[in-house]
């Protein structure tokens, strides 16, 4: 009983520390931004892990879906809650924003998952490298498309989300963004964990192992791949929506380049393909690393790939491989291992 409550209590404690600490200004604004990026990166890594880790496909344009989510939700909230040159005065009262900004972020996620569907239909006809090439292309297409849409700022970017956030905090001054990001991160972890431990998710892993055999087990491989891809893209869109409302409230197409997609891939391979807890750890580690290397400026992009090369040499399956925390520390298993594992094997 007490052990079953341990994880929720831990999450709650984290929530209180991060959100409460930020609210009371115990964490300065810099740390709040770091927490925010950690949350975003957790969503990006854990969601990409579904495709690249559990399904064994190779998507390398995760930032494109993030961009779709960011722009769609940003445009919606600015239209609803902010004074804007294009969209005019706010159409809804700011007090509704507390509810409707998360809704806009979710709509951004839906939009991203719809774009994912458009890509998945042609690229899952065959297996292998096609998805990698297509997602790579999509990353460039999305970036160029946004750059050429003058109405949303084109290459200069889109801003106004800060005004939205200001309007909301004027109603009630608590760190809303951190709260939503926290919920988004935890929600992503729970969703992916549920997904991969469901029968449907077992189908995803069977496809990775042997697609023909998976079909012979009754797995509708095309459908399963489609759904998994859409879930993953949708979550990237949610990450993008949160990102758009971050500090400065400003996004531009240059933020969602292949470099951003690479960051997500680095976190997945660093943490271990097919390990949710590994990905969470690597997202935390990677975000902190980026911050620590900030003084190096551009040279951090020399250090980070080097770390990745070393990682591949000495720990090719990533920090955790395909294991979860519970597999590495058995005493934790009762808390958050895979469910069937702590059911005693009947012999």
């Amino acid at each position: 009983m007490s052990k079953k409550l341990a994880v929720p209590l831990l999450v709650l404690a984290l929530f209180v520390i991060i959100v409460g600490g930020s609210w009371l200004r115990i964490f300065n604004e810099y740390w709040q931004v770091v927490f925010f990026y950690i949350g975003i990166n957790i969503i990006m890594a854990v969601s990409l892990n579904l495709i690249n880790g559990y399904m064994g496909e190779f998507s390398c344009g995760h930032a494109a879906f993030m961009a779709v989510g960011a722009y769609v939700s940003g445009i919606l909230t600015v239209w609803w809650f902010a004074e804007d040159k294009v969209f005019g005065p706010p159409v809804l009262p700011a007090s509704l924003g507390i509810l409707l900004v998360p809704v806009a972020i979710l709509i951004g996620g839906l939009a991203a998952s719809f774009v994912g569907l458009l890509i998945a239909i042609p690229s899952f006809r065959t297996r292998g490298d096609y998805l990698a090439i297509i997602t790579l292309a999509v990353n460039y297409i999305v970036k160029s498309a946004i750059e050429n849409m003058e109405i949303i700022g084109g290459p200069r970017g889109f801003l106004g989300m800060q005004r939205v956030m200001n309007a909301i905090t004027a109603v009630l001054d608590i760190p809303w963004l951190l709260i939503w990001t926290f919920i988004g991160g935890i929600g992503t972890i729970i969703l992916i964990q549920r997904f991969v431990s469901s029968t449907f998710g077992k189908g995803v892993m069977a496809i990775r192992e042997d697609e023909v055999a998976a079909g012979l087990m009754g797995v509708n491989t095309r459908w399963v791949k489609l759904i998994a891809f859409m879930v993953s893209c949708g979550l990237a869109g949610v990450a993008g929506g949160l990102f758009a409302h971050g500090p400065g409230g400003y996004i531009n197409p240059g933020m969602f380049t292949i470099l951003k997609s690479t960051e997500a891939m680095v976190m997945v391979y660093l943490g271990g393909m097919g390990s949710i807890s590994g990905n969470v750890l690597s997202a935390v580690f990677f975000t902190l690393l980026l911050e620590m290397l900030r003084p190096l400026g551009v040279y951090k992009w020399v250090v980070i790939p080097l770390l990745l090369v070393l990682m591949m040499l000495f720990r090719p399956s990533g920090l955790m491989g395909s294991r979860e925390l519970g597999d590495v520390f058995p005493q934790l298993r009762a808390w958050f291992g895979k469910e069937e594992e702590y059911a005693p094997a009947s012999n």
Partner: peptide, 13 residues
Amino acid sequence: IFAKLTVAENLDM
């Protein structure tokens, strides 16, 4: 067979 899954997981499949 699904090489990286356990025996029990294969049977589940």
